[in-house]
Amino acid sequence: MNTEHIVKSFDDDLKKIESLIVEMGGLVETQIIDAITALIRHDHELGKRVLAKDVRIDDLELAVDAAVVRTLVLRQPKAQDLRAVIAVLKVAGNLERIGDYAKNIAKRSAVLGDIRSVGSSDTVLRGMSRIVQEMLKDVLDAYVARDITTADQVRLRDEDVDQMHNTLFRELLTYMMEDPRSITPCMHLLFIAKNIERMGDHTTGIAEQVHYIIAGSVPDDERPKHDVTSLALLEGDGTNGSSSSTL
């Protein structure tokens, strides 16, 4: 369904919404890369720029909301048009949250001081963020191209991010048990890993919205969830350090 509307200005409204999402998405992608770079390179100036740029993302979300309300009132969209307009409300919300996580990482990078990494955290965080950033890029391309296959593939890739998060969780737990002085940096690094893991979840949420726009239904299969860190202490006895073995 790519034919134009009889009322041309309706097409203009939809294009405007799409361009806002694309701009927001591009900005969020950059924020992810910059936040992790600021962390790994100890680049505080870059970290500050990440914090400052988040305001623009928040503004764009408000602009999307306003454009959606305007389109609903003036055009009363139906079928695929309605789905496209409704879904972007959620997509903008997802992007804004991802932006917030990037901001959070930038804030923590300042707190971490001279500690660059613990164990393989450097590599794992970089790897996780790269996957999430690529997922985000692909899902935005899928949104613009209305490509349901790519959107569905993006959903599945979140599994890799979850697995890396689990691995890092396990590793940092052992460091913390070995040396209590590492608890503070390890906790910050774990929160950063969790932030990236949540970015992956939000990107998956966007992929589901893209699927909805195209197919008119959300994907009915349950997405595989591999983040088991929240179960760590529940399954282990929590007293002798065996909890990590449950992962």
């Binding site: 369904m1 034919t3 509307h5 139906k78 079928a79 789905r83």
Partner: peptide
């Protein structure tokens, strides 16, 4: 019909497209 029509002719008509 108004959210997920099956036929592209229906979709074109209700979304106001040249179909």
């Amino acid at each position: 019909i108004f959210t997920t029509p099956k036929d592209t002719r229906t979709e074109s008509y209700i979304t106001g497209r040249i179909g």
